[in-house]
């Protein structure tokens, strides 16, 4: 009898406890929305706040959001804005120096981060030539975005494009020469 009376009470308490648990989870995990503004400076402020309040894991998406917003208002000063944002990210411990360099140079530098390595070309680049060139081609499209669409640096982008073609030619010759020497 007592058990029959207690059962509905226990059910109500159980449901309440479950609801409270779900609610508490919802408040601890941030939703990390993308910036809605079209202004790059405001968007960077928004992103900085988000990154400092538990959204570090969304760095890649935020960087992409910022690039998209900057594409709407391209200008040479955007390079500095992105550089300062990345330096800030490094200072905050969100990125290592190497990561910050990678994010910046991949989009805003003429030189290719995909063509790096500590060993000589015969032993390191030539065996992976196709992969290196494929990665460079992908990086070139990021440079198109960073240099051309965000920073309006047409000359920089054309130089990167030419550098890619030159690397293709020089690697073809060098790797043929390396292979002939074996």
């Amino acid at each position: 009898m007592i058990t029959n009376k207690l059962f509905p009470t226990l059910t109500v308490f159980g449901t309440l406890a479950a609801l409270l648990t779900v609610a508490s989870c919802a408040t601890t995990a941030p939703s990390c929305p993308s910036p809605q503004t079209r202004n790059l400076d405001s968007a960077i402020s928004f992103v900085k706040t988000s990154l400092n309040t538990g959204c570090q894991a969304h760095f890649d998406r935020y960087y992409d959001d910022l690039l998209r917003i900057a594409e709407g208002d391209p200008k040479p000063e955007n390079k500095r804005t992105f550089s300062e944002f990345l330096v800030w990210s490094g200072d905050q411990g969100l990125l290592s120096t190497r990561q910050a360099e990678e994010y910046y140079n991949r989009y805003f530098n003429v030189k290719f981060m995909s063509m790096k390595g500590d060993y000589n070309n015969c032993s390191h680049t030539c065996p992976n030539k196709q992969k290196v060139l494929f990665n460079m081609e992908r990086e070139l499209s990021d440079k198109e975005r960073g240099l051309l669409k965000v920073s309006e640096d047409r000359d920089g982008y054309y130089r990167a494009d030419r550098l890619f073609q030159e690397v293709e030619l020089v690697l073809e010759a060098t790797c043929t020469a390396c292979a002939a020497g074996r």
Binding site: K111, F112, M115, K116, G117, D118, Y119, N120, N121, C122, H124, T125, C126, V132, L163, V167, V170, A173, T174, C175, A177, C178, A180, G181
Partner: peptide, 15 residues
């Protein structure tokens, strides 16, 4: 080419 660009240079130096 083999010596100067292939063996004496890293990919970054070549670039």
């Amino acid at each position: 080419l083999r010596n100067e660009l292939g063996k004496k240079m890293t990919p970054w130096q070549l670039q």
